[in-house]
């Protein structure tokens, strides 16, 4: 495997009494598109927050470009965050600014560029996501797909090394989904950055991912290229990728035997 931008080593994380990860390890290769998949509710978004340093693991280590994220001071963490960016599920555009100002925001905060230069950069980024014409709209006037593209333009404004996508395809119609898939792929190639996609839209992500990590049951249950994954021996991986309703993850939530409960009800 080539050099990796993120290493997750033996990470254990729990929220309250619930253990979310137990001794989990995997790595994200540099310059590739990595997909993290898994059933809902297993803490995929939590993973991104751990990498971004918003949460700290109970034990284990996470490194970004060789530096330990949990061990960073606040200043170092902020320095590292200018090199990574995150596309949130909702887009998280600032509702009180126009699309143009949203994209210009990180530039105005972190650079000393003149307004003229900022205008050029913003227009370039908006052109890349196909929203140059929508620069004066407010976020409330955008459709869900457009908002996500505008947010994508904002997250590439500072030319980061790593983009993390949190469920980029959730709730999108097929056309915008196609647009986003194309955008993620082309941005990764053109800008030479690393992408980390957290999703459960199997078909879309398998078409563009170079590397797939499947998380379930508090750890990694399989990782490799999309082809390897499709031929994976684990029944859980197969169930997830093929979308079978019953298998290792049962259709029924844990319950007492059906007959017992019905009869018990009758007796009362």
């Amino acid at each position: 495997m080539s050099q990796s931008i993120i290493e997750i080593k033996d990470v254990t994380f729990s929220r309250g009494d619930r253990t979310i990860y137990k001794n989990m390890s995997f790595s994200v290769p540099k310059g590739k598109i990595t997909a993290i998949m898994g059933p809902s509710g297993i803490g995929k978004t939590t993973m991104l927050r751990l990498i971004g340093g918003q949460l700290k693991p109970d034990s284990g280590d996470i490194t970004f470009e060789g530096q330990s994220v949990p061990g960073m001071t606040r200043a170092e963490l902020y320095e590292a965050r200018t090199k990574m960016s995150m596309l949130f599920q909702s887009g998280a555009l600032f509702t009180d600014m126009s699309v143009f100002d949203n994209v210009a925001f990180p530039l105005r905060e972190h650079t000393q560029l003149s307004e003229e230069l900022i205008r050029l950069v913003v227009l370039m980024k908006l052109q890349a996501v196909g929203l140059r014409g929508a620069r004066d709209l407010m976020p409330s006037e955008l459709s869900g797909g457009m908002a996500r593209r505008a947010a994508l333009a904002r997250s590439i404004a500072l030319d980061p090394e790593l983009i993390m996508y949190d469920e980029p395809f959730a709730g999108q119609d097929p056309i915008s989904m196609g647009v986003l898939v194309r955008l993620i792929k082309s941005l990764n190639q053109v800008l030479g950055l690393s992408s980390l996609i957290v999703t459960h839209d199997v078909t879309e992500v398998l078409s563009i991912a170079d590397h797939v990590v499947i998380i379930a049951e508090q750890g990694v249950i399989g990782s490799g290229s999309p082809e390897q994954m499709l031929r994976h021996s684990s029944p859980l991986v197969q169930q997830f990728l093929k979308g079978l309703s019953d298998g290792p993850v049962p259709f029924h939530f844990k319950a007492a035997p059906y007959e017992d409960e019905l009869l018990l009800g009758a007796q009362q």
Binding site: S90, A92, F94, T95
Partner: peptide, 17 residues
Amino acid sequence: LMKATEQLSSLEMMAID
């Protein structure tokens, strides 16, 4: 609302407190 729409997290990830 800024918290619910992840705008606060987003700021944090942009290295802005």
